[in-house]
Design a protein around this nucleic acid. Sequence first.
DNA 1: CAGATATTAGGACGATCGTCCTAAGATCTT
DNA 2: AAGATCTTAGGACGATCGTCCTAATATCTG
Lengths: 196, 196
Amino acid sequence: MVLSTSTREQIVAAADRLFYEHGFAHTSFTAIADAVGISRGNFYYHFRTKDEILAAVIESRVESTRGMLRQWETGAADPAERIRRFIRIVLTNGADIRDFGCPVGTLTAELAKLRHPARPEATAVFTLFRRWLAEQFTALGHASTADEKALHVLAFSQGVATLANAFGDEDFVHREVDRLEDWLAVQLRPADRFPQ
Amino acid sequence: MVLSTSTREQIVAAADRLFYEHGFAHTSFTAIADAVGISRGNFYYHFRTKDEILAAVIESRVESTRGMLRQWETGAADPAERIRRFIRIVLTNGADIRDFGCPVGTLTAELAKLRHPARPEATAVFTLFRRWLAEQFTALGHASTADEKALHVLAFSQGVATLANAFGDEDFVHREVDRLEDWLAVQLRPADRFPQ
DNA sequence: CAGATATTAGGACGATCGTCCTAAGATCTT
DNA sequence: AAGATCTTAGGACGATCGTCCTAATATCTG
């Protein structure tokens, strides 16, 4: 903990990026060590197994997600505007998503197929978004359906990310964002002619 | 081509299932050969590289998808009912999707991360559904927005599959299916009080 | 400055990977 | 029955994987 960014932090950052771009199983110790510019022996000093570095990456993602959600809370007092910020992630991170998909969704799917023990921890990042979105819907007066609506917004983001990655179609992402923002606007008028 | 199911067909079927359950990169020649009950040498006689077996699996999926779409066409004259059949796949294959996600979406995402040359072929399965759905919307009189609506339905299925796999929540899938069927019903009333 | 500790480099290990080869057995043709 | 072809088995190969070990160097502590 001497340098401004310690070796350990550099390793986690490089592994995070490589897991995202190439997947967990396809990223080797050597690839991470090369990305940081250290030897495999040095890597082994900080992380003894591949599961350890995966756990560190997931923990790092949990923390950065918490930070992002906090930032959205301080940046927007209106719960609807907070939800819109989440909806627009697929635009904000558009290039990465077209290239590599959603970091949360793709890692969760991979760990499920690998039957990896860290799968629940990866899913916890989803739960973080889920609960935060549900809080916003609750604040909007939809407590009884907050979790359902949170999952709907999450499903939107995953569907858009998967197809954006498959087809690389930026216009499609814009259209779907507009569509879900319209849906959100309808939710904000609970006494409208249409139920739910 | 002597037996009712040739060795080659058995290999493709086993590889298809293993690619789905464990991912392409994580499925070895040995695992496929063991699943079929043959030696690795025999496997090599039929498929010389991993890319060859992947191409055969994708081709098999393309064909079975074409067959399924044809069956939906003969089984339902109403284009709206045909679209509903697609929407309900996430229920029909509910157990598999909760365990392993969508076969098309997860393979496409993995090949994208691996920068695999067969990525376009895997995406072609998506395109098959996309064009078929667009045809149905066109038949319903929505030619100008048929492709947009087809992508919307595709995005729904991918989002639902990803979250069903992450959370294993069957009720969520049912709710989302109901929601999209409601959306479809609204699309069928073009002169309604709501535009689009 | 000297000793203890933290950090790094680089190679070795057993296992597994995709790939390839050779030879034996099964099947078909005539 | 005999020869040609198709199909199968099983092992060997080089490369890479995750893991581990040892020794050298950097840094901190007194």
